[in-house]
Simulated scan of single mutants.
Amino acid sequence: MLQLPHQPLQVAAVPPQRAPAREDQAGPWHSEAVCRRDEAGLFFAPSKEPTAARLSREESAKRVCARCPVMVECREHALMQPEPYGVWGGLTAAERRVALARRRRRDVELKTSGATDRIAG
């Protein structure tokens, strides 16, 4: 039997994950994310994905998000970054754009009504 010299096992470098915008004192919110145990392909679209397949995949991802204990933190992270791709905190990229537009509109309305109250008062 031929014996080969022992070579140390080489481990491929894993690219670092994108860090969240904030970390709680108990540790980063994403360490508790349910999606860490699922395939990333569920949360991010492959190129040239057909619409029906995309909608089905996004619904599956949202079901994972719905049972996640850090869904709100994940969603806020995705809105504050803003994350341009994937399902984060139960929202697709398109849904996050709508949510951000609503927040901007609400902020403008609040500023406008606050200025009007000061002038009238």
Rank of each mutant, 00 (worst) to 15 (best):
P28G: 05
P28L: 03
W29M: 02
W29H: 03
H30Q: 14
H30P: 02
H30W: 15
H30L: 11
H30R: 09
S31A: 10
S31Q: 09
A33T: 02
V34P: 01
V34T: 08
C35T: 00
C35G: 03
R37F: 14
D38C: 03
D38T: 00
D38N: 06
E39V: 02
A40N: 06
A40P: 06
A40I: 01
F43P: 00
F43C: 00
F43S: 00
A45N: 11
S47F: 14
K48T: 02
K48S: 07
K48W: 12
K48A: 11
E49H: 09
E49W: 12
P50Q: 10
P50D: 13
P50E: 12
A52V: 15
A52H: 12
A52S: 14
R54E: 12
L55H: 08
L55E: 15
S56V: 02
R57Y: 12
E58N: 08
E58R: 09
E58K: 04
E59P: 03
S60M: 15
S60N: 15
S60F: 13
S60R: 15
A61G: 03
K62S: 03
K62N: 04
V64M: 07
V64N: 04
A66R: 13
A66S: 15
C68E: 01
C68T: 01
M71R: 09
M71K: 05
M71G: 03
V72S: 07
E73I: 02
E73L: 11
C74F: 14
C74G: 07
R75V: 00
R75D: 01
H77C: 11
H77Q: 05
A78K: 06
A78R: 04
L79F: 13
M80C: 04
Q81Y: 12
Q81W: 13
P82W: 13
E83S: 06
E83P: 05
Y85L: 05
Y85A: 05
Y85P: 00
G86P: 05
G86Q: 08
V87Q: 00
W88H: 04
G90F: 15
G90Y: 15
L91Y: 14
L91A: 05
L91V: 00
L91E: 02
T92D: 03
T92P: 01
T92H: 04
A93I: 04
A93R: 08
A94Q: 15
A94D: 10
E95L: 10
R97N: 05
R97I: 03
R97Q: 11
V98F: 11
A99V: 00
A99W: 15
A101L: 08
R105V: 03
R105T: 02
R106H: 09
D107L: 10
D107T: 04
D107A: 12
V108I: 04
V108S: 04
E109M: 11
E109F: 06
L110Q: 10
L110H: 11
K111W: 08
K111P: 01
T112R: 14
T112N: 13
S113T: 10
S113K: 10
S113M: 14
G114V: 02
A115C: 06
A115P: 06
T116W: 14
T116V: 07
T116G: 09
